[in-house]
Every structure is written in C-alpha cells, then in structure tokens.
C-alpha cells in the first residue's frame, strides 16, 4: 500500500481569498465585526471603485455581507463577514503559516 504524499499547502489556497486586498478586507471585517466602507478604503489605500469590485467578488463568493443604510442624511455602507468568510479567513491563515513553515524547513535542509 502506498502512503499518499501530504498535500502541498499551495494547492489548498483559495484564489478568492489568497489576494492581498481581499485578505485585508476579510481580516479587517473579522477584527472589527462590522466595518464601514470608508474605513476599509482608507486602511487599504484603494479607490472607491476598486474596493467595490473586490467587495463584489467576496460577496458573490458568500464571504461577506454588504449592508447599506443612512445615518442622518449620510449614506453608510457596512461590511461584515459571513460564517463562510470566517472559515475561509481562518483556513487561509493556517495555509499561509504552513507555507512559511514548509519554506523554512526546505531552506534549512
């Protein structure tokens, strides 16, 4: 019987999450529980249009929920993680750590 070789962490990476800006959105939304669009834009250094496109990708994948509302006369958009988004973020971080460990092990040999 042959023992299957352990899967390389790179093969498990999710293309939707494994991207600098989208990983940033997920991290900020996770830590903040709910985050406002303008805060995200400022922290990530993006234009409104660029951020909207990334949010659309995450929303289509079911990883974030976007909620639009008003505070007085001012429109505000809030972003929060779904349960799937929380799981995806946790898995991505685990894989990144595995990848780093693997690179360090290989470099040490």
């Amino acid at each position: 019987m042959t023992v299957p070789e352990p899967q390389h962490p790179v093969t498990g990476l999710d293309d939707v999450v494994h991207q600098r800006v989208r990983l940033g959105i997920l991290t900020i939304a996770h830590e903040a529980r709910r985050v406002e669009f303008v805060y995200l834009r400022t922290q990530l250094g993006l234009t409104a249009g660029n951020l909207s496109q990334h949010l659309a990708v995450l929303e289509t994948a079911g990883l974030v929920e976007v909620e639009k509302g008003y505070e007085g006369k001012r429109g505000r958009t809030w972003v929060s993680l779904t349960a799937a988004g929380n799981t995806a973020l946790a898995e991505e971080i685990t894989r990144l750590k595995q990848l780093i460990a693997r690179v360090e092990t290989t470099a040490g040999q």
Partner: peptide, 13 residues
C-alpha cells in the same frame, strides 16, 4: 501577507 494581516488587525484594535 501574514505580517500585513497582523498589521491590519492591530490597527483595527
């Protein structure tokens, strides 16, 4: 990427 993730989390806190 991980360093950035930690940086974002810290700034939110």
């Amino acid at each position: 990427l991980l360093a950035e993730v930690r940086g974002f989390a810290h700034r939110v806190r």
